[in-house]
Design a protein around this nucleic acid. Structure first.
Length: 800
RNA sequence: GCGGGUGUGGCGGAAUUGGCAGACGCGUCGGAUUUAGGUUCCGAUGGGCUUCCCGUGCAGGUUCAAGUCCUGUCACCCGCACCA
């Protein structure tokens, strides 16, 4: 009988569906397990094999947990707002709602064909009214709590998509959606005050079980630095110029200061700056610089001295010049720095180029050659002289600054506030009304959801205005507070809004009176295990931790950190070893694989192809190897005996394999788990028969990986449903054979192998080795210097 | 520049954490079945001057024993980046 996956796979998918085999039950007395995978963006291209790999990991864990008696929540949904759908709509004239529904339908059928054990009754769609009502609700709560503000600043702007992007969405100076170069543009936009949560996000990392590199990337992204704020007085106008530094200990070495070209004090005193024209020209030049020029040509410092500003160093009253240079950013610290060329590489380059004096205040380097950034004895530094350690010097100078009232300790973060808006149609409308009398007024909670109005033209305005701005019936409204004429906000929320809380909705997806009931949240939270891509570590994962933490602070959720554990899968590369992309033409469509080889083969292959957490290239021939494996499993039916337990020969192997597979699944080591089952299969084949007991255990172990074939075999051979049985157990004591092969080495080189009782002690092992027929002659005429025995492993005889 | 990671056969990758390097799979070679191809099955497969020697990017070191530990060094990949 041949293994016909085309008949078997749909049969069991239908069975699981009709019997709701994987339905999670809120409140069940069984222990709960919440496994979360990143829900897909339903693009027109359909599923990618990367999705299959990303979901297969926790799919295996979830199926194992159910067999272990857990009440498992393993949900799926769709993150469906976003630009690609809207761009398709613009191109084809089909409404984004229709495009989205079509894509979701396609994804759903593809996911079902792979046989994932999702709880299909909890599917979430971020563009659904019942869902985005609560996205807007959370936004209003944030507004109420002062975490939402508008600001006119330089923003990241994508000229191609015509939208403002957050810092997280323009990493590397490229637009996250279309990869165009982003430009800096001055614009008034919405912000979420995520920096207010920087410390909490940092502290939260301490108690969660995230992969170390994930924690590290988040820490670096948040980028906390401790230092000091110091005020320098500008002699000409008495204004205080505030700077941030991590090295207040080098304050005596300041020989100039630098302000960012956009620093407001320049604007304020433009009348009294003699070379203001030159500064304006420089500012324009900087704004035009491309990302390449800003990052690649860093060594070449440019700048202009401000003619009309002189700063006074607060510790020694020295007069120092002030420059403008684009190596100082308006977006970090205070937009101005004290420059200590002797002990900072960038300041050194600038000083050298502009002929500014360099004063050494820390001994240890050669400042005629380069900046010295190490530790050492303080010199030329007044009361700091003689101090040899940075920490002490900083502590001392801080007390001096505080006494004079010109400085204090402070912290800074690299992370910036979250630019929270898109000037596009396909997103959640921001529920705010602009009233000429009352200002920004939130839409009342009872009026949520604030629905997206129907539009005919989705094309964004050329000046970066949302298509919603053209809909008079949407824009013109009454102020909820005073009832007067007012205008609605026309920006929509960015793509990351809906995904920032979807895992909460899964707990209670149809709730109409709250984002989820407290009962459901208390039962399911936190997510026990979250797996996803590394590319989301500094975006979605930070954003959702922020939203969740906020919801915790207002009492809407019962736990402070949403994810107890986070892992990440590696990419699947194209057969050519390069990242899959349409333009390269090396994309593998999972649908084709399912049609030709079946879902089980695909599932086993994506987990067997390599280390789950590493990238690995797709290989059609390796895929065939997995097909052979399953066909050989299928063929075991022909050699099954009537014996119930384990056969004597295979007993230890059975126990060992169960132990290994059980442990490997928990560590995402699916490749070695499958390899262990292949080894077992080889042993069974060599032996020529399999007992009923062995068959049951093997099918159970394999079930999470290849559920269809194992379900079918179990059902045919034993009756009953395998996914309703229990996970297999092993006995540690039975994992080892009675006699095992050990190695005899002479001077560290393997010279013989021998069988010995597994529990032989060291003396017995050595005695046996010395009597070994291969070993004996090799020892003739030699003096034995040392004898080492490692139980169950080897004997090493050192001779001279 | 800073931070993290990886270097093992022709390929993807194993190695119980110091104890037989190369599990498992792919590929390749040989054989059987087949008119042939494919499939399936059996055997071999790190390299060499093959009683023995050499092999985990490279050079040293520690140890009875090193892919694993230490020192130095090279290459590649990822993330951040004039962060004061």
């Amino acid at each position: 009988m041949k293994y016909d996956f085309k008949e078997i796979e749909p049969k069991w998918q239908k069975y699981w569906d009709e019997h709701e085999s994987f339905k999670a039950e809120t409140g069940s007395s069984k222990p709960k397990f919440y496994a979360l995978v990143e829900f897909p963006y339903p693009s027109g291209a359909g599923m990618h094999v990367g999705h299959i790999k990303a979901y297969s990991g926790l799919e295996v864990v979830s199926r194992k947990r159910r067999l272990e008696g857990y009440n498992v929540l393993f949900p799926i949904g769709f993150d469906a707002y976003g630009l690609p759908t809207e761009n398709t709509a613009i191109k084809t004239g089909v409404h984004p709602r229709v495009v989205t529904d079509r894509n979701i339908h396609k994804f759903t059928s593809q996911l079902r064909k792979v046989g994932f054990s999702f709880d299909w009754s909890r599917v979430v769609d971020t563009t659904d009214e019942g869902y985005y009502k609560w996205t807007q609700w959370i936004f209003l709560k944030m507004f109420e709590n002062g975490l939402v503000f508008r600001d006119r600043t330089l923003v990241n702007y994508c000229p191609s998509c015509k939208v403002v992007l957050s810092n997280e969405d323009s990493q590397g100076g490229k637009c996250d959606v279309c990869h165009s170069d982003i430009i800096q543009k001055e614009k008034e936009v919405w912000y979420l005050h995520i920096t207010q949560y920087a410390d909490k996000l940092l502290q939260g990392l301490e108690k969660v079980d995230f992969l170390p590199n994930i924690k590290l990337q988040q820490e670096n992204w948040i980028g906390k630095s401790t230092g000091a704020f110091v005020e320098f007085t500008i002699k000409e106008n008495g204004e205080k110029l505030k700077i941030y530094t991590t090295r207040p200990d080098t304050l005596y070495g300041v020989t100039f200061m630098v302000m960012a070209p956009e620093h407001p004090l320049i604007e304020k005193y433009r009348g009294s700056i003699k070379n203001i024209d030159e500064l304006d020209a420089y500012k324009d030049e900087c704004a035009k610089k491309s990302e390449f020029e800003r990052t690649q040509l860093v060594k070449d410092k440019t700048g202009v001295k401000i003619d009309g500003f002189t700063a006074i160093n607060p510790v020694n009253d020295t007069e120092i010049p002030i420059y403008v240079s684009d190596y100082v950013m308006m977006g970090y610290g205070t937009g101005a720095i004290m420059a200590v060329p002797a002990h900072d590489t960038r300041d050194y380059e600038f000083a050298t180029k502009f002929g500014i004096p360099i004063i050494e205040v820390i001994k240890g380097g050669d400042i005629s050659k380069e900046a010295y950034t190490g530790d050492g004895e303080m010199v030329n530094s007044g009361e700091l002289n003689g101090i040899t350690n940075k920490k002490d010097a900083i502590a001392k100078v801080l007390t001096v600054l505080e006494k004079k009232g010109v400085g204090e300790a402070g912290v800074q973060y690299k992370m910036k506030d979250w630019a929270f808006n898109r000037q596009r149609y396909w997103g959640e409308p921001i529920p705010i009304v602009h009233c000429p009398k009352c200002g920004m007024v939130p839409v009342p909670y009872e009026e949520l959801p604030l629905r997206l109005p129907p539009v005919e033209n989705f094309q964004p305005g050329s000046d970066g205005e949302s298509p919603l701005a053209k809909i008079d019936s949407f824009v013109n409204c009454k102020c909820p507070k005073c009832g007067g004429d007012a205008k609605r906000e026309t920006d929509t929320m960015p793509q990351w809004a809906g995904s920032s809380w979807y895992f909460l909705r899964y707990c209670d997806p149809n709730n109409d009176t709250a984002l989820a009931s407290q009962e459901a949240l208390k039962y399911w939270l936190p997510v026990d295990w979250y797996n996803g891509g590394m590319e989301h570590v500094t975006r979605h994962l930070i954003y959702s931790r922020f939203w969740h933490r906020f919801l915790y602070d207002i009492g809407a959720v019962p736990v402070d950190e949403p994810y107890a554990k986070r892992t990440a899968q590696g990419l699947i590369l194209g057969p050519d070893g390069v990242k899959m992309s349409k333009s390269r033409g090396n994309v593998v469509d999972p649908n084709d694989v399912v049609d030709e080889y079946g879902a089980d083969v695909l599932r086993v292959y994506v987990l067997f192809m390599g280390d789950y957490e590493q990238a690995a290239p797709w290989s059609e021939s390796s895929l065939k190897g997995c097909k052979r494996f399953l066909e050989r499993i299928w063929a075991l039916q022909d050699i099954m005996t009537d014996d119930e337990g384990y056969s004597k020969e295979l007993s230890a192997s059975m126990h060992r394999t169960i132990k290994k597979v059980s442990a490997d699944i928990e560590q995402l080591k699916f490749n070695t788990a499958i390899a262990a089952m292949m080894t077992l299969l080889n042993q069974i084949s060599d032996k020529g028969s399999i007992t009923k007991g062995e068959m049951k255990s093997l099918l159970t172990m394999l079930n999470p990986f290849a559920p269809h074939i194992t379900e079918e075999m179990y059902n045919t051979l034993f009756g009953g449903i395998l996914s309703e049985q229990s996970w297999v157990t092993y006995d540690e004591a039975l994992c080892v054979e009675e006699t095992i092969e050990i190695v005899v080495q002479i001077n560290g080189k393997v010279r013989a192998k021998m069988n010995i009782a597994a529990d032989a002690d060291q003396d017995t092992m050595i005695a046996a080795a010395l009597e070994n027929e291969t070993v004996k002659p090799l020892l003739d005429g030699k003096t034995i210097v040392k004898k080492i025995a490692v139980p169950k492993k080897l004997v090493n005889i050192v001779v001279k």
